[in-house]
Amino acid sequence: MAAVPLLPPKHLLLQACRGLPPEDHPVLRCAGLLADLHERRLTAVATGRIDQERAHMVLDIDRWVAAELPKAARDAQLHTETVGTVVDRLAQFSALAYVTLASSPDDAINDAALRLTELSIAYEHLATELAAGRRRLPNLTGNREYEY
């Protein structure tokens, strides 16, 4: 019996968002790219192209999750977001925390770090519930093949 591919743990996801070389995992690669896009977005005048690239990365994550993670029972509790949107927000908060460290007072740094910490814990809980089949995700891929 083959091992079930799992979502990466939060510490690896946060490392990928900070530009550390990710392990060979599609979600980690996308997380690093998303963080780069969010950093560019913080200083960009026009963000349309950046947001298009982010949308593609989010969809890539969601397609991987739909194809690789075990399907949850139909009566499993529905999560309000996809894994891709959660990883995108983690990348956003990571980029914001990094910029805040360089230019803001202590209160802003603490706020940014708290948001990032809380979301990373929520991600880890979601990953655990998905792996156990206790949670299901909305299908935002547009492909009925991935229907939960």
Score class of each variant (00 low, 15 high):
Glu53Lys: 13
Glu68Trp: 10
Ala95Arg: 07
Pro8Gln: 05
Leu116Lys: 11
Tyr123Trp: 10
Cys17Asp: 06
His38Met: 01
Glu68Ile: 00
Leu126Tyr: 00
Trp64Gly: 04
Pro138Val: 10
Pro26Thr: 12
Arg74Glu: 12
Pro5Thr: 04
Pro22Thr: 11
Ala102Tyr: 00
Glu81Tyr: 07
Thr80Ser: 13
Arg40Ser: 00
Ala108Asn: 10
Tyr123Phe: 14
Glu23Met: 10
Glu129Ser: 13
Gln77Phe: 06
Thr80Lys: 13
Gly133Phe: 01
Ala131Ile: 04
Gly133Ala: 08
Gly84Leu: 05
Arg29Glu: 12
Ala132Ile: 06
Leu6His: 07
Tyr98Val: 03
Leu126Arg: 09
Ser103Trp: 00
Lys10Ala: 15
Val58Ser: 01
Leu6Ile: 03
Arg134Cys: 07
Val45Tyr: 05
Ala127Phe: 02
Arg144Cys: 08
Leu78Cys: 08
Asp51Ser: 14
Asp36Cys: 02
Tyr146Thr: 06
Val83Asp: 01
Gly142Cys: 13
Arg29Ile: 12
Leu90Phe: 07
Gln52Cys: 09
Leu116Val: 01
Leu28Ser: 02
Lys10Met: 03
Pro105Ser: 04
Arg40Asp: 07
Asn139Thr: 13
Asp36Ser: 09
Arg144Ala: 15
Ser94Met: 06
Thr85Leu: 13
Leu14Ser: 02
Leu78Tyr: 03
Ala102Trp: 00
Thr128Trp: 02
Ala131Glu: 05
Tyr146Asn: 06
Arg41Met: 02
Leu101Ile: 00
Asp111Ile: 13
Leu12Asn: 08
Leu78Thr: 12
Pro5Asp: 03
Ala112Leu: 12
Leu90Lys: 05
His25Glu: 08
Glu124Val: 00
Arg54Thr: 11
Glu23Ile: 01
Leu34His: 00
Ala131His: 15
Leu78Ser: 09
Ser103Phe: 02
Leu34Val: 05
Glu118Lys: 14
Gly84Glu: 02
His56Arg: 15
Pro8Ile: 02
Ser104Asp: 11
Tyr146Leu: 15
Leu114Tyr: 13
Ala91Leu: 05
Ala95Gly: 04
Lys10Thr: 10
Thr141Lys: 07
Ala122Met: 11
Ala73Gly: 11
Ile61Pro: 01
Gln77Ala: 05
Gly32His: 00
Lys71Gln: 14
Leu42Pro: 05
Arg134His: 14
Gln77His: 04
Gln15Asn: 14
Trp64Ile: 03
Tyr146Phe: 15
Asp106Gln: 12
Gly32Trp: 03
Ala95Ser: 12
Glu68Asp: 09
Asp62Val: 05
Ala102Val: 00
Ser103Gly: 12
Leu59Gln: 15
Glu39Asn: 02
Glu118Gly: 12
Val99Cys: 03
Val58Asp: 02
Ala76Tyr: 09
Arg89Val: 03
Ser103Glu: 11
Glu124Trp: 06
Val4Trp: 11
Ala97Trp: 10
His79Arg: 08
Ala73Cys: 14
Ser104Arg: 14
Asp60Lys: 15
Ala31Thr: 11
Pro9Phe: 03
Arg144Gln: 11
Pro22Met: 01
Leu90Glu: 00
Pro9Thr: 06
Gly133Thr: 07
Tyr148Ser: 12
His11Phe: 08
Ala72Arg: 00
Arg135Ile: 04
Gln15Tyr: 10
Leu90Thr: 05
Arg115Ala: 09
Asn139Gln: 09
Ser103His: 10
Leu69Asp: 03
Leu33Asn: 13
Asn143Gly: 01
Leu140Glu: 11
Arg63Trp: 03
Cys17Tyr: 04
Asp36Asn: 06
Leu101Pro: 00
Arg54Asn: 05
Ala112Phe: 10
